[in-house]
Design a protein around this nucleic acid. Structure first.
Length: 645
RNA sequence: GCCGAUGUAGCUCAGUUGGCCAGAGCUACUGAUUUGUAAUCAGUGGGUCGGGGGUUCGAAUCCCUCCAUCGGCUCCA
């Protein structure tokens, strides 16, 4: 007998060689039917694999992340089986599960596949699924594996086998399809009840652009048809929140062919968003001891040679303009300009830390295929600042920057975030990273310590640091599931030295400061793109481009409406009057659609009583108020939103 | 940059076996209406069918090419 420990610490005894499936069956038939795989001693196994010794066991179903992955991985095999029927001779690359479904990379030879073919493939997959074929695992020698795929003529599988060790190679077979695969898989195909192929794209073999490009077919499957319907509905909802769609509807930004790709035009509403963000940032930075500076958009080649950016990042910068016999570059980052300002300030240790802030405008030559709405652009404005400090001051400064991040997260109600702590790889010192082994370790320790002390969730990613030091990237997820780097906080112990930046210490000796590059609000472009999706366009009142729409019942009350507007403007409230000759229902509907936070309805009653009827977006009628009362409502709401603890 | 798809009015979209002056709704404008919490009625205007080239008696529709956008890949200081 062996002892099986369940996640709730319960221990039960089973005969040696029992399987997870049998264990599930001993609990309930229903559970057994829904078990996709099992986590045995932390490793995911087929539920049919015999367990030979004492173990911890977690049964995996659709409810578990690994259960879903197993389901989708098996679905990729099922799709491959269907593809092999329609496209004889098709060769297979890899077919893993992903966050939402799975894909398979295929080489169709001369054949083509398009989304028009999805239906017949989906139907075939369902037909095969109904057969309920078991996924069977086979251990195979390296030689046999090579023979098998040589005969099949699948060079991609052979390429994969090449890197595998003899004795660790397994095949999985279901129906008429055999695949090189580590597994695990669901027991049989009948668990797949709903199928949707979602997308088709090119992908390089092994992710290397020097290799051949394969066709990647994406799909997703579910154990119930109703779940697929829900998923499709969710995709449609996500589309409605897309910042490109809302950005257009709410007249926030636009792109124009004549201006150029990746170069956003901010419409008046977008400019208000920018102004409010800058106000927030500048206010916080002022209170935190930052000084504002302003620098030109271009600089000479020599500065980027000094900074060390040019040799590494020239491809990402716009080509230089040449005049007066000199090369000038559009700036892709603000740091070198700020370093020059630090140098001019020539501070002593008593002046440190020096914190230089600028909403700097940068230009980056992103590859054309990378451009993506506001999230990836070629012209951007960064919530940038550089903090120059001594080694002793570093931890406090770094902590203060992180605290500023956390404050912003509260203001914007950002709950899901992770800090990616990027460190160096010792073997790449002198190549990818500046050759300062001790400084690297020392700084990384300091950063780690601050993160741990501040209780900030983080993941450490080796070998992703900047060339001048370790960094923290803040990953966030927009409401529709897009993940991206919003903000960055980087340590730089190298470039100040290259610029010859120094300060006098207490012993009257010259020392080089450490520099912290930080941008808690990232760039206006990405941040606003994120905020649009985050709030689905329903901005908090302090950000909303138009805070109040004043809606006269009829033309007779336009004059009073205009007086109300002027009074709001005098109280620093943004609003407009809807003077169109429309019925009040229509004006309300339009204001609701435009997501205006407050509507003031004004008719005979209000004009006589010198009041306004207040309607809140998404909530409805709040009743009648005097103007000072209404202004107070807005003022309180703004204070509540901005003064977080 | 690579693979694939898409591009018709300010917006959302019809319109392919190639064939009358290219359509609809919303928006805008004009008129009527003077309205009480999510769409009043009528009329009018508006399009180099992404750009260029080609095939054809004839092209939004077929071909070539360029540009842009979208979905991925690669990249992301």
């Amino acid at each position: 007998m062996i002892k099986i420990t369940f996640p709730d610490k319960n221990v039960r005894e089973y005969p040696q060689g029992t399987t997870a499936h049998e264990i599930a069956k001993s609990i309930s038939e229903g559970l057994a039917r829904n078990v996709y795989a099992a986590k045995v001693n932390g490793e995911v196994w087929d539920s049919s694999r015999p367990i030979q010794a004492d173990a911890t066991l977690q049964l995996l179903t659709w409810e578990d992340k690994e259960g879903k992955s197993t389901m989708w991985h098996s679905s990729a095999h099922l799709m491959a089986e269907a593809l092999e029927i329609f496209y004889p001779g098709v060769k297979f690359g890899i077919g893993p599960p992903v966050e939402n479904g799975f894909y398979y990379d295929i080489d169709l030879g001369g054949q083509t596949i398009s989304s028009d073919d999805f239906k017949k493939i989906e139907d075939k997959m369902l037909e095969l699924a109904k057969q309920g074929n078991a996924y069977t695992r086979k251990e195979i020698s390296k030689k046999d594996a090579i023979d098998f795929f040589t005969q099949k003529g699948d060079e991609y599988k052979l390429d994969l086998i090449k890197d595998l060790e003899d004795g660790s190679i397994t095949l999985y077979e279901q129906g008429n399809f055999v695949d090189l695969c580590r597994g695990p898989h669901i027991p049989n195909t009948s668990l797949i009840k709903a199928v949707k192929l979602t997308n088709i794209a090119g992908a390089y073999w092994r992710g290397d652009e020097k290799n051949k490009q394969l066709t990647r077919v994406y799909g997703i499957t579910f154990p119930k048809k109703s779940q697929l319907d829900e998923y499709v509905l969710m995709l449609e909802e996500a589309k409605k929140r897309d910042h490109r769609k809302i950005g257009k509807e709410m007249e926030i930004f636009t792109f124009d062919d004549d201006v150029g790709p990746g170069l956003p035009l901010w419409l008046p509403n977008g400019a208000v968003l920018i102004e409010q963000l800058e106000k927030l940032a500048k206010d916080n930075e002022r209170k935190a001891g930052y000084q504002r500076v302003r620098t030109p958009h271009i600089a000479k080649e020599s500065m980027y040679l000094t900074s060390g950016h040019l040799p590494y990042y020239e491809d990402s910068m716009f080509p230089p303009m040449i005049f007066d016999g000199e090369k000038y570059y559009l700036k892709a980052m603000n740091c070198p300009h700020h370093h020059k300002i630090f140098k001019e300030l020539n501070p002593s240790y008593k002046d440190l830390p020096v914190r230089l802030a600028e909403y700097g405008t940068c230009y980056r030559y992103e590859q054309s295929g990378e451009l993506f709405g506001l999230m990836r652009v070629r012209a951007l404005q960064m919530n940038d600042a550089h903090i120059y400090c001594t080694k002793e001051q570093f931890a406090d400064e770094f902590r203060a920057v992180n605290e500023m991040y956390l404050k912003y997260f509260k203001i914007f109600n950002i709950e899901k975030y992770v800090m990616r702590f990027s460190t160096h790889a010792p073997e790449k010192l002198g190549k990818k990273y500046v050759d300062e082994p001790e400084l690297w370790l020392e700084t990384e320790d300091m950063v780690r310590k601050v993160l741990i002390e501040s209780n900030i969730p983080y993941v450490e990613v080796p070998d992703e640091g900047a060339f001048y030091g370790p960094k923290i990237d803040v990953q966030v997820w927009s409401a529709i599931g897009r993940e991206f780097t919003l903000a960055t906080n980087q340590v730089d112990f190298a470039v100040p030295g290259r610029f010859g930046l120094t300060y006098r210490n207490a012993q009257n000796q010259l020392e080089t400061p450490i520099c912290i590059h930080r941008a808690p609000l990232g760039t206006h472009e990405r941040f606003i793109g994120f905020l649009i999706e985050h709030f689905a366009g329903n901005f908090p009142i302090w950000l909303a481009p138009n805070q109040v729409s004043i809606l006269p019942i009829s033309e007779k009350f336009n004059d009073y409406a205009k007086k109300v507007l002027q009074s709001l403007i005098n109280s620093d409230i943004r609003g407009l009057v809807d003077v169109r000759d429309e019925k009040i229902g229509k004006k309300i509907r339009d204001a609701e659609i435009k997501k205006v936070p407050y509507m003031l309805i004004i008719g005979e009653k209000e004009s006589i009583e010198s009041k306004v009827s207040v309607r809140k977006h998404g909530q409805g009628d709040l009743g009648s108020f005097t103007l000072p009362e209404f202004a107070k409502i807005i003022e309180d709401e703004i204070n509540n939103a901005l003064n977080v603890k």
